[in-house]
Amino acid sequence: MFEARLVSSGTLKKVLDAIKDLLNEASFDCSDTGIQLQAMDSSHVSLVSLSLRADGFDKYRCDRNLTMGMNLASMTKILKCANNDDTVTVKAQDDADCVTFVFESKKQEKISDYEMKLMNLDQEHLGIPETDFSCVIHMPSGEFSRICRDLSQFGESVIISCTKEGVRFSSSGDIGSANIKLAQTNNIDKEEETVSIDLQEPVTLTFACQYLNSFTKATPLSNRVSLSMSANVPLVVEYEIPDLGHIRYYLAPKIEE
């Protein structure tokens, strides 16, 4: 028996919004420690890694490890049937071929359940070693989202250049070029608005705007984001989901022409 309950359906909707741009379907691996998801986008350029801890749920039970392959468009249809403040419970029997979503309104006057067929997905998992990055940038997630959106008007790629002075995001194309520089800030009063850089050595890498913009669909999950970079390895964009877990996106850097 698997059962996981969240007080707010809105959180699950945000998690789904954060992955459905990149993935059509995904396997949710459930164990007694929580729910994990790892999947590459269809072009295999980026990778999504989601972790939801068991203790972040209001109720969590997983008697046997279970992998639930879900079509994310179908899951979106079902979650649209929930109000954001409805409680959601995800349930499945061991070896089940379907999963049930139960939505309960705040006053319990409306209870609805939706059953969805599960899929057998043959997904390849990649082992990602813990790495010391040359630089790690912590910044407001809304600012990162804004920068990606603004720069994607100019070109298909963004150059991220990190030095001890700060971080520079640049893009160029037919209409011209754009540069956005962020300096480190020391605003202790508004910690969530700070930009901080842990720098071992300066790094400059180029990434596709299209993927960065997809990653920023996780912005509603967290007001902070971290960007971890080292030369010639994938960028890691991480959003901590408060009291529940995290979502990480990995993106291969552009190859030098």
Binding site: M40, H44, L47, E124, L126, G127, A252
Partner: peptide, 14 residues
């Protein structure tokens, strides 16, 4: 989109 390596070239499948 510009030429780009697959993410799988950086990590080992398991």
């Amino acid at each position: 989109l510009f030429p780009q390596e697959e993410i799988g070239t950086y990590y080992t499948p398991y």
